[in-house]
Design a protein around this nucleic acid. Structure first.
Length: 1112
RNA sequence: GGGCCCGUGGCUUAGGAUGGUUAAAGCGUUCGACUGAUAAUCGAAAGAUCAUGAGUUCAAAUCUCAUCGGGCCCA
């Protein structure tokens, strides 16, 4: 069999499974890679997906892009490097493992054992990297995948980390301890995806951090961060924003801070009484109006605007009004100045009034209590004003030593005792319930506190207060911020506003906090001396070994993770003490940011790195990546090489559910990737994603993918099936080329080549949306015009040249289209290619994905022809509309269609008239530039105006107006007055007294549109009527043939009986009926036994038909 | 508060860089047709002052500014 159909009721997912099996059985991907080795490189760097859960449909969007350009460049003949990557370290994985193990806090991890916990984290990564690998293969992603089974075996082997095992990588088996092999995943020796927990990835970051340290850019700082006392962990701002707020009611307190050296107190309000232990300053707004008031014998300062809320029942007297600015620098006595910790840190001496622009009057007293050790903004203000930092809580929310009676009590139990204490001290003003949105831990729901912690930072460079382009080379020299901006500008950002966003982030970013007080992640290579302030950064495993003074044996054979690496100690270069590693792990964006170096063997094989760096292309969902992955990639590359690691970066939007909301398990609008792949199919998703503008968020669901299938895939498959049915029947093969092509053929080939040109150029620019739209348009015209207008050419029984032309043309269209679509819909195109090309062209590559990208034949692009055909399509469409309004069915032939157009258009349409005749089922198309052929002008009197002017003569005037000729009508239309004769008198008719409207000429149904007029003659002569009936008869015979299950090319004998007027048609139109229905004879009367019969009704007249298959 | 994006028929979106006849699709609605691609398909109709206001221009959905509304990022 040369050509093979695809079942019209095709189940796309099962088709895709069949294609996957074909690829696997024939090692198609491997063959492609071998074919391209040593050619011009194309390199893609994958932003790692967190291997922590199954992937979602939102991942499928970006992954579709990632795959499509790799396939495109494969077809363009490049050597492609597109290694997939997994993000393997960080809190998210810890959280899932904690859930698995039922842990509630960090204490649970400590008692379980850090080594075991880290192992569990690695095992989780191996499990889900296997799952995601399977899913990605299901999506059709082509890259050097690990065998998921091997990943799972390695996971099991890791149970005993130091035991020998073997991993079958993509280049063959590798043997080592389980922990060693895990640490080598993704290396050139092992093949497969890269894993950010690999030894190389971690040590490469050590190298970077050491370089930064050598430049003096690593420092220890402080931060005040939201903290869950129950989980004993910091919570990032991001975690709070997504689901971390709850409506809560707390007891808030108003209290007095007595002023030093002047009368009265500052009136302070706070919702977090525990922070009063750490008060250092009071912030006011310098421009706000404040008042000094007396109330029940006490004197207070507060802002004027808050008087009504503070004293709801009045009873105060304003003694003085003043601007906030006048109070700056005033000193006061804090509520806990007697405690040892604040005293030792110098808080009492520091107490003063400071300015802060964020102070408002919406709540409180317009005076804000500032505790730099217990709040984020407080901390920043503290840095700005050089205030001491009092951090009262430990990581479990317990008050530290040095806080008197509060020490060792828990922060959650503190409000009431504090209120009692304040009352005893005589500074309590009022306690009052207050409801607000308060941050809580997204894992356990505990209320968060702010904790002051030591953290490690990279100095990203100060902001220089001048326009970007005026920053000098010298200023940039020590300033990563500006160097990164330069790197960012070297890349092309899609969409264009991406660069502006990245630069905005770079302008505003703070120093990079790289430490996190957790267990599973990059071991920050910072060793500190417990006896002095010395610290150093280690740049490699080798350096660590060399400098180790103890613990190396314990560490040997392990990956650089906690707890083993912590055993290694080095000598303090300053005091000779024993320095230990800080317990912190690294920010996971360090892991993802380094991969343009770590995965390309930057440290060990610079030639290899040179070949593949920088990436030609990267793409990710842009929400968040400007400050995450794009940022960290730029940072690392700027530190190491001061250049961008990617040439083109494309960002795309987020996937939303079809109701326009985020997909959410509990809202019931989420779609899982596996379900989507199983029901709608991977290619359907891929097409939906690619035919969407990347910068817009996409509404993803079964309606959209259903449309893809119904409006695009099905018409395409229908055309394909149409071709295969007839080509197979006729035994056409591609070597049967025609002598000449028709205009219709040349037109569709012209369309095809301009499509190919568009696709080639746009895909090279990383633009796929418009290509998909063009392809959809092409399939539309191919189906609705080329094939529809060519159908009869395929039906003819003899194989003439015109038929060859039709086959050759349609074959070329389908084959080229398949190649153009191959990168976007790899499964569907493979299914078509196998059935269309493989049987017909013995030398064709065995897979569509082993083909080269189609060449564009510019010579076949004929702009003039395409314009003319567009015109013919429009005329046909208008003609159909005209028939439609006349109510005459299309099967009924009509005598003529008249087209009114200018002479140029007539000229252009002339050679295409045959197509229009067939399409409109008319005997002839007549062209004219005289619109009067189809449209007259009707003049209607405006009675409202005429009545006043002519009184009782109106009817006769109106009569005369209606009877006006065309010339006068035109003058009226042009705003001129005309004269008429009524009863012998001359009457002037003003333009406003008559409405002029076009009206159709009798006997035609007419449609008008933009300078064109198309009409069909509606008269049905007896001859035409007979022909119409003949077509009706043909249709009934055809449907009967089909019911009878005859083959398309079976010959039949037809017997008929019925109304005399119908029988007469059989005689008059016999030849036509015979030819159309493959009837070798037409016989009046009932058939012999065994005939297939049917009774019909044609416009109320009876028809009986009896069909017999004839052999030979 | 700063930066960026988006507002187009009932719904979902094209078009927008380069201003130019009557703003284009699909869904939905209504009517009709076709019939050897057929549980498919095709045609037609109704439906939009292109968020609002101003400006530039002979001409603005498109360019500029402002306002309103929605979203994202950073404070």
């Amino acid at each position: 069999m040369t050509f093979e159909q695809i079942d019209g009721k095709v189940d796309i997912p099962s088709l895709e499974r069949e294609v996957t099996e074909f690829w696997n059985a024939n090692r198609v991907y491997e063959k492609r890679v071998e074919m391209q080795a040593g050619r011009q490189p194309w390199t893609f760097i994958d932003g790692p997906i967190t291997a922590n859960n199954p992937m979602g449909v939102h991942h499928a969007w970006g992954r579709t892009y990632k795959d499509l350009w790799a396939r495109y460049w494969f077809m363009r003949g490049r050597e492609v490097r597109n290694q997939n990557g997994f993000d393997c370290q960080g809190l998210w994985i810890e959280v899932e493992v904690e859930k698995e193990l039922g842990f509630k806090s960090k204490r649970d991890i400590e008692s379980y054992g850090v080594a075991e916990f880290v192992k569990k984290c690695k095992q989780r990564v191996l499990e889900f990297s296997a799952v995601q690998t399977e899913q990605s293969i299901r999506l059709g992603m082509w890259t050097d995948w690990d065998d998921p089974g091997e990943l799972r075996k390695l996971k099991a082997a890791l149970e005993d980390p130091l035991a020998e095992t073997t991993y079958v990588g993509t280049h063959g088996p590798v043997t080592g301890t389980a922990e060693e092999l895990v640490g080598k995943l993704g290396s050139r020796e092992m093949g497969g995806s890269y894993f950010t927990f690999s030894d190389e990835n971690n040590y490469m970051i050590w190298t970077v951090l050491k370089r930064l340290h050598e430049r003096g850019l690593i420092y220890k700082g402080h931060d005040s961060m939201p903290w869950c006392p129950r989980c004993a962990t910091g919570i990032s701002q991001h975690e709070i924003v997504t689901e971390g707020y709850r409506e809560l009611t707390h007891a808030s307190v108003y209290l007095r801070f007595p002023l030093r050296g002047r009368e009265g107190s500052l009136l302070i309000w706070t919702t977090t009484p525990w922070t009063l232990t750490s008060n250092v300053a009071v912030a006011i707004h310098p421009d706000l109006d404040y008042v000094k008031v007396s109330h029940e014998g006490e004197v207070y300062y507060l802002s004027k605007g808050t008087l009504p809320t503070v004293f709801p029942s009045g009873g105060y007297e304003v003694l003085e009004e003043l601007k906030g600015a006048k109070m700056l620098g005033w000193s006061y006595n804090g509520p806990y100045d007697e405690l040892e910790m604040p005293k030792s840190l110098g808080a009492p001496e520091a107490h003063r009034v400071i300015a802060w622009g964020e102070v408002g009057e919406a709540e409180g007293t317009g005076m804000v209590h500032i505790a730099p050790g217990a709040g984020k903004e407080d901390f920043e203000l503290g840095v700005q004003y050089g205030l001491p930092v009092v951090g009262p809580l430990d990581e479990y929310g317990v008050f530290k030593e040095g806080l008197g009676w509060l020490s060792k009590t828990h922060v959650y139990d503190s409000p009431q005792p504090i209120f009692d204490d304040l009352k005893e001290k005589g500074i309590l003003f009022r306690v009052q319930d207050y409801t607000h949105r308060y941050p809580v831990c997204w894992r356990c729901g505990s209320e968060l506190v702010f904790l002051h912690a030591e953290e490690w930072f990279i100095d990203m460079g100060r902001v220089i207060d001048k326009p970007l382009d005026e920053v000098t080379e010298e200023e940039k020299e020590k300033n990563l911020r500006y160097q990164m901006m330069d790197s960012a500008k070297q890349a092309r950002w899609i969409p264009g506003f991406g660069l502006a966003r990245e630069l905005d982030w770079l302008k505003n970013m703070h120093d990079w906090m790289i430490s996190k007080k957790r267990y599973y992640g990059l071991a920050l290579p910072i060793w500190t001396c417990p006896d002095c302030d010395w610290y150093d950064v280690i740049g490699s495993k080798e350096e660590l070994k060399e400098r180790a003074i103890e613990g190396w044996d314990e560490f040997r054979g392990h990956s650089p993770h906690k707890p083993y690496v912590d055993a290694v100690k080095i000598r303090c270069a300053k005091c000779g003490g024993t320095a230990t590693r800080i317990p912190d792990v690294g920010n996971p964006w360090l892991d993802a940011g380094i991969i343009a170096y770590s995965t390309l063997d930057y440290r060990t094989d610079r030639k290899y790195w040179d070949k593949w760096f920088p990436a030609h292309f990267i793409t990710e969902c842009y929400i968040g990546q400007f400050r995450n992955w794009f940022y960290s990639m730029l940072a690392m590359s700027t530190i190491l090489e001061r250049r961008t690691p990617f040439e083109v970066v494309m960002g795309h939007g987020t996937v939303l559910a079809e109701d326009g909301r985020q997909m959410h398990k509990s809202w019931g609008n989420a779609i899982w990737f596996d379900d989507a792949a199983d029901t709608m199919g991977a290619d359907t998703m891929r097409w939906l994603f690619c035919s969407w503008k990347p910068e817009n968020d996409i509404l993803f669901g079964y309606t959209g993918t259903g449309d893809v299938k119904r409006l695009f895939f099905m018409p395409l498959l229908n055309v394909f099936n149409f071709f295969t049915i007839y080509a197979e029947l006729d035994g056409w093969t591609p070597d049967q080329q025609p002598e000449a092509l028709t205009e219709l053929d040349r037109w569709i080939l012209s369309r095809l080549n301009s499509l190919a040109r568009h696709a080639t150029e746009e895909l090279a620019k990383y633009e796929v949306f418009s290509t998909c739209k063009e392809i959809e348009r092409f399939v539309d015209v191919l189906s609705r015009w080329y094939v529809r207008r060519s159908r009869r050419r395929f039906w003819r029984s003899e194989a003439d040249d015109d038929k060859k032309a039709a086959y050759a043309t349609l074959y070329t269209c389908l084959k080229t289209l398949t190649l153009l679509m191959a990168p976007v819909t790899p499964f569907l195109t493979e299914a078509i290619y196998q059935r269309l090309v493989r049987g017909a062209e013995p030398d064709a590559p065995e897979s569509v994905h082993l083909c080269t990208w189609p060449e564009v034949d510019e010579g076949l692009i004929d702009e003039g022809l395409m314009e003319r055909m567009d015109l013919a399509v429009r005329v046909s469409s208008m003609g159909r509309a005209a028939r439609n309004t006349s109510g005459i069915k299309l099967r009924q032939p009509l005598a003529e269609a008249v087209v009114v157009a200018d002479t140029d258009d007539i000229e252009r349409l002339m050679s295409l008239r045959g197509l229009v005749e067939e399409e409109l089922n008319v005997k002839a198309v007549r062209f004219t530039s005289e619109s009067g052929e189809l449209m007259g002008l009707e003049v209607k009197p405006v009675f409202a105006l005429l009545g006043k002017k002519h009184g009782r003569n109106v009817p006769r005037v109106a009569e005369a107006i209606k009877a006006l000729g065309k010339a006068e009508a035109v003058r009226l239309q042009n705003g001129e007055a005309v004269e008429i004769i009524v009863d012998g008198a001359t009457v002037e008719v003003l333009p406003e007294e008559a409405e002029v409207a076009p009206v159709q000429v009798e006997g035609y149904s007419v449609v008008e549109e933009a300078g064109l007029l198309v009409g069909v003659r509606t008269e049905i002569t007896p001859d035409l009527e007979r022909e119409g009936i003949a077509r009706d008869i043909v249709r009934r015979i055809q449907s009967l043939r089909k019911e009878a299950d005859f083959e398309i090319d079976d010959r039949i004998a037809t017997y008929y009986s019925g109304d005399p007027s119908i029988e007469e048609v059989f005689e008059a139109e016999g030849d036509y009926i015979k030819a159309e229905t493959l009837s070798v004879e037409l016989t009046k009367g009932e058939a012999p036994g065994g005939a297939y019969s049917g009774e019909f009704d044609i416009d109320g007249k009876k028809l009986g038909l009896y069909l017999l298959r004839v052999d030979g």
